[in-house]
Design a protein around this nucleic acid. Structure first.
Lengths: 137, 137
DNA sequence: ATATGTGCAAACGATTTGCAACCCT
DNA sequence: AGGGTTGCAAATCGTTTGCACATAT
């Protein structure tokens, strides 16, 4: 098991939350696998070993992990959200090919500062992927 | 009828498209009413005078008007898209109160240029509202 | 023991589609 | 007359919810 997954489980335990099969599996999948997994993707991975774990449980587990700050749900302008360990990078999604690019959050800092200064608006890029066209399209 | 609506209808006519009740009504609603109307909002407005016009017709009409460049569909991170006359401003949506703020597209130009230079990614803000918190929250 | 999680089915909101009938040009 | 549009119902996709049952602590 990856360190990240172990850390989540340890945090759950010390926070008085229960460790369940679904939570353990999903923490491992998110920590171990590539990024940008939708709930359905996760369901597929889970199904191999534990076909009884229902999609709604996956949604509920992800919702909890998000609420507790371990996981980020990233909305796309169109199509399903994806989920990943709570992190510090933001996302660009190519509307042509669907590929998702990670960009360090720091790259957006001055833009965010400018919107805040000019419009009094605090931009939250953590839960939204920005749409556009990548260099291959 | 507003000038904008008349212009759309004229463009339809000269483009060999048909003028139908749904198209005329929706052009007028989009031109005349406040911004940020969802398909359901438009359906409500239409229903008063023409209860026979079905929601699916509204979606199809909006789809056509978007495809022909008269209207923009703006996706929100969560909740229904909204529609408006094709324009030059982008959108900030407050996740707390749901209010939508218009920002001139020019305000994003250097940001878009920077993403293009650094990541080879061409950001398209026209069809996506940016999420965050407004100054009242 | 008991609250917290889960399986399942069913509902949900937003949008799309198949198809026959319609009506703009 | 003809084909682009429409009405309607039904399907779709992603996600949420109600409820009885199960299980981690």
């Amino acid at each position: 098991m990856s360190d990240d997954a172990a850390a989540i489980l340890a945090a759950l335990r010390s926070g008085g939350r229960r460790i369940t099969t679904a939570r353990r599996l999903i923490a491992e999948i998110l920590a171990g696998a590539g990024q940008h997994l939708s709930a359905a993707d996760i369901a597929l991975s889970v199904r191999d070993a534990h076909p009884e774990i229902h999609l709604s449980t996956i949604y509920r587990t992800l919702e909890s992990l998000c609420a507790w700050g371990f996981v980020d749900q990233v909305h796309q302008p169109v199509g399903p959200s994806f989920f990943q360990l709570a992190g510090t990078h933001h996302h660009l999604v190519c509307q042509q090919c669907g590929r998702i690019y990670d960009v360090p959050a720091a790259a957006f800092d001055d833009w965010i500062a400018r919107l805040r200064d000019t419009y009094g608006f605090e931009l939250h890029l953590g839960q939204t992927a920005l749409a556009g066209r990548c260099c291959d399209h």
